[in-house]
Amino acid sequence: MVFLHATSLADAVAALSAHPGAVPIAGGTDVMVEVNFDRRRPAALLDLTRVPELSRWWVEDGRVRLGAGIPYARVIAELGDRLPGLAMAARTVGSPQIRNRGTVGGNLGAASPAGDSHPPLLAAGAEVELVSNRGRRRVPVCEFYTGVKRNVLAPDELIEAVWVDSVAGPQQFSKIGTRNAMVISVAAFALALHPERQQVGTGIGSAAPTPRRAREAEELLAGELDAAGLWESRGPLPATLAEEFGSRVCAAAAPIDDVRGSAAYRVHSLRVMARRTLTWAWNDYRKAA
């Protein structure tokens, strides 16, 4: 196995260009498990831990540019105010040790349907910035996942950063596990209200081959809030609307039965999480007035 170090982004891009298909590794919380369990024997590993560009974040034009190598612990500590949905999800990742090592970029690279970062990134309408020798491109995160543990990355492309709107409205994240900490998601749901554009964002985890949005639920909710003038009035949310929203979220899911949970439970829990997170987010929106 070839082990490549990069000490700058340019280095990393050049290395990947020379060794297309090399597996980038940052925290190693996913890649090393696969290697250690002999499920994967990549021809080359590309170490990104010393690439400074990947471990920085800044705000540009109202958007947070989050370096792909930033671990969850920093998301929680530094970005709880700007990216609350992502920070809430980050709090549920593994153990403190894993949160110190694991990165949002790594989560995207692995593209597991159970990855905790995906639902809040989907709800927030994030874009993934990819870089290669051939240049840069930004992919809306909802187009990033192409199948179970697959994404749009070309063999010579690297995930450089994620661009997320700095928060303008309430965000929530909720995740089911069968114990009260350190558990892989059985089902997860993220919600973002975007009052500035009177839109709603959603993200579903662990309930389909890929993380996905519940578009019909988003449209229903945004439309009903608009029709009832609730964005402006910040009046109470009709209970029937929360229920209907939950139903539409369920309809967007396509879960399976597996050792972690039944498909029926996943659908059921999504309904409950959708209703509850909407209730909390709407209450936050009303209080913020």
């Binding site: 994240f173 995740k175 009260n180 900490a181 409950v272 509850r276 909390w280």
Partner: peptide, 13 residues
């Protein structure tokens, strides 16, 4: 709470 920081309930249910 049941669910812990996975934020599944604030007292509901």
């Amino acid at each position: 709470l049941p669910g812990g920081v996975a934020n599944t309930t604030h007292g509901e249910g």
